[in-house]
Design a protein around this nucleic acid. Structure first.
Lengths: 126, 126
DNA sequence: TTGAAAATGAAAATCATTTTCATTTTCTGC
DNA sequence: GCAGAAAATGAAAATGATTTTCATTTTCAA
């Protein structure tokens, strides 16, 4: 196996995804790379992401507005409780959801399963 | 309640969604309406869909390529198990999530709580 | 009937993403 | 090293869904 050579751009993109530690869009990753002083073009970011996705190193899904977001596969992620009013967020543990996801997916024969979940409401201060 | 007046365009869009009986994109719905001899503009189709979505009469989600797809809502709040490859979706029951959401929110003193959750993976066929 | 508000849709604008294409970098065999 | 092929790069143009603009038409209540 290991047919895949990893080029410089792909390594840069993986690096920034590690720093982010969760989902980010191509545009966001591009900006972060720029700010970090990396010399890399937007086109190349897109190409690196495509290639990483098809090598199953990166997970791709869609935000509600249709923008694609990416994260390293196998990142164990957390969830957020977000205030609709002031935007403050609380990180929450999600093992319950984790189990729920797994059992539902199994039940329907799905593989390579991931999920998104977010709770929103109005926080005590607001 | 029932603040919502339904205008002609929205009725046309609901009509075509009924005929389709599943998911369709705005562009597809527009084409179907045209072919059905309806006089309606693309802009108006988009506007009608927006309004139906925010009235919770229509469900909106995203195809793998980011295009928005719509269908008439079932009346019960559900979640989706979506295939990353072919886009096929399974409606799933979410009472477990419902309870999880409620308890987390309570724990942190949040009010007016809602949530989003979606499971994605690769379906048995793909 | 009339004037205000809502609805309409063609055309322009937006914005993420992809494609094109000319240039630069990397790799391979000599 | 060295030439030449192959891969990578990125700026600019193209694409395509969706939204906005804005002038016109329709609806509706007084």
């Amino acid at each position: 196996m290991a047919t895949n050579t990893m080029n410089k751009s792909e390594i840069k993109v993986i690096g920034v995804l590690e720093r982010v530690g969760g989902f980010a869009s191509a545009q966001e990753l591009y900006q972060l790379l720029q700010r970090g002083g990396e010399s890399i073009g937007l086109t190349t970011v897109y190409r690196a992401l495509q290639s990483l996705v098809s090598d199953k190193i990166v997970d791709q899904l869609r935000r509600e507005d249709g923008e694609a977001i990416y994260r390293l596969c196998g990142d164990n992620h957390h969830h957020h409780l977000v205030c609709k009013q002031c935007g403050s967020t609380v990180e929450i543990e999600g093992s319950a959801i984790e189990r729920w996801t797994k059992s539902i997916a199994e039940e329907h024969g799905f593989r390579e399963v991931g999920h998104t979940a977010e709770i929103f409401g109005i926080c005590p201060k607001c």
